[in-house]
């Protein structure tokens, strides 16, 4: 299928004509003309991009920019007003097993009577199949995933007895246990302690080394150049997307955040540090 996008809405000039039209099985995530509306009010408009494989992708934008909405719309969790999503060249439905999802930590009730290990095995329910019980081999794999995020010794704890960072790691382990190729993470760095932040970054690097792709919603602009290779700047529409070096510029950030951005200088500084490191 070729890209013949009906250009009715004005788009920024750096918008590639073929954005999001890829059916290529090599492209982990391709979004084309995606619009989502809640209660008559559009939340994201005309989103389109192709993500490169094997990269760490940061999704950045102000509050209410539609970052979580974008991830949910990709996974068919909320209805789309228009648009097309391809995951490795197929619909999400077909390639669901190749995608791992880390929801926001606040989205669940942590008083729920399950252990950390129980939560991680939830990542395997799809594989275990309907009506069948969780077996020992699944629990061993879940334990392995907990070990990867460094909290294997907490496997039997009820989840409200974990610290915020440990809860976040549990969620990460639940996605890792599936051994997916594309990971979608909703603010994994939100309100976690320094050790957890480190652990998550290590996991992301590990994923990259094994040619996995991770799309991470991120709110700390300063660490974007350090953590990510590729960035999607979102504020209801795509402001820009591309490799961090080219895209994560003061000009683009100004466009994304408008007057709300006071961190610009610090970001410039962070970019400079990255260049020095390279």
């Amino acid at each position: 299928m070729t890209a013949s996008s009906p250009d009715q809405t004005p788009r920024s000039k750096d918008w590639p004509a073929t954005a999001g039209s890829s059916n290529d099985a090599q492209v982990p995530l391709s979004v084309y003309d995606l619009t989502v509306a809640y209660h008559r009010k559009p939340v994201i408009w005309d989103i389109g991009f192709d993500l490169p494989a094997g990269q760490l992708v940061g999704v950045v934008g102000p509050n209410g920019a539609g970052k979580s909405t974008l991830l949910k719309a990709v996974m068919d969790l909320i209805p789309r007003a228009s648009g097309r999503v391809r995951v490795f060249g197929e619909s999400y439905r077909k390639n669901r097993h190749r995608v791992g999802y880390v929801p926001q930590r606040e989205s669940v009730d942590w008083q729920f009577p399950v252990s950390a290990l129980d939560v991680v095995t939830m990542g395997l329910y799809d594989e275990i199949g309907w009506c069948l019980p969780v077996r020992k081999k699944h629990r061993l794999r879940a334990l392995d995933a907990l070990r990867r995020v460094g909290i294997a010794e907490l496997a039997d704890r009820q989840i409200s007895q974990l610290s915020g960072g440990q809860q976040q790691r549990t969620f990460l382990a639940r996605a890792l246990v599936q051994d997916a190729e594309l990971y979608l993470m909703d603010e994994p760095f939100a309100a976690v302690d320094a050790a957890t932040e480190r652990a998550i970054v290590d996991i992301l690097r590990e994923l990259k080394q094994t040619r996995k792709t991770a799309v991470v919603i991120h709110h700390d602009l300063q660490t974007v150049p350090e953590y990510f290779d590729y960035v999607v700047l979102l504020n209801m529409r795509i402001v820009a997307h591309g490799p961090v070096e080219e895209t994560f510029t003061s000009e683009n950030l100004q466009k994304t955040y408008g007057g709300r951005l006071t961190l610009l200088d610090e970001v410039t500084e962070a970019m400079r540090r990255r260049e020095q490191a390279l």
Partner: peptide, 22 residues
């Protein structure tokens, strides 16, 4: 009893359940 694990996932984390195709 048969739908035990599916119902647990539904009650605990609806969003994740949906993403897994439940």
């Amino acid at each position: 009893l048969l739908l035990y694990k599916e119902l647990v996932l539904l009650c605990f984390d609806e969003g994740f359940a949906g993403s897994r195709g439940l």
